[in-house]
Amino acid sequence: MRVRKTAQDRAGDILVAALGLFQRHGYAEVQIEHIRAATGLSRGGFYHHFGSKAAVLQALVDQEQSALAKAAGPDLLALLRIGSGYRTAPPGVEASLSVPEDVTLYLGYLERAQDSHLAPLIEEALQRGGDLPMPAPHAAQIFLAVNHRITRQVLTGAWTRGEALSFTRSALLGCEAMLHRPGLFAPALDALEDGD
Rank of each mutant, 00 (worst) to 15 (best):
M1S: 11
R2W: 01
V3W: 00
A7R: 12
A7L: 11
D9R: 13
D9A: 15
A11Y: 04
G12E: 12
L15V: 01
L15R: 10
L15H: 01
L15G: 00
V16E: 14
A18Q: 00
G20N: 13
G20P: 04
L21Y: 08
F22T: 12
Q23M: 05
R24H: 06
R24C: 07
Y27L: 08
A28F: 02
A28L: 02
Q31L: 12
E33K: 13
E33S: 15
H34T: 12
I35F: 10
A38P: 09
A38H: 00
A38M: 01
G40D: 11
L41C: 05
L41P: 10
S42N: 08
Y47L: 08
Y47V: 05
H49L: 09
F50L: 04
K53A: 13
A54I: 09
L57V: 04
L57F: 00
Q58V: 10
L60C: 02
Q63W: 10
A67N: 07
G73D: 10
G73P: 07
D75Q: 09
L76R: 05
L79C: 11
L80C: 02
I82Q: 11
S84Y: 12
R87T: 09
A89R: 14
P90I: 09
P90R: 15
G92R: 07
G92N: 03
G92K: 05
V93C: 03
E94V: 07
E94L: 02
L97H: 02
L97F: 06
L97S: 06
S98H: 14
V99Q: 15
P100T: 05
E101G: 03
D102N: 01
V103Q: 09
L105C: 02
L107N: 03
L107T: 02
G108H: 01
Y109H: 12
L110Q: 13
D115Y: 00
H117G: 08
L118G: 02
L118P: 01
L118Q: 04
P120T: 04
I122L: 09
E123T: 13
E124I: 07
A125L: 01
L126H: 12
R128N: 11
R128T: 14
G129N: 06
G130S: 08
M134P: 00
P135T: 01
A136H: 06
A136G: 05
A139K: 10
A139M: 07
A139E: 06
I150Q: 09
R152G: 07
L155I: 05
A158R: 08
W159I: 02
W159G: 02
R161Q: 04
G162L: 12
E163Y: 02
A164R: 06
L165T: 00
T168M: 01
R169Y: 07
R169T: 10
A171H: 14
L172N: 09
L172I: 04
G174Q: 14
G174C: 06
C175A: 14
E176L: 11
E176W: 10
A177Y: 13
M178C: 08
M178Y: 14
H180R: 13
R181D: 10
G183L: 02
A186F: 05
A186G: 04
P187V: 12
D190F: 03
D190E: 15
A191H: 08
L192F: 02
D194F: 09
D194G: 03
G195P: 00
G195C: 13
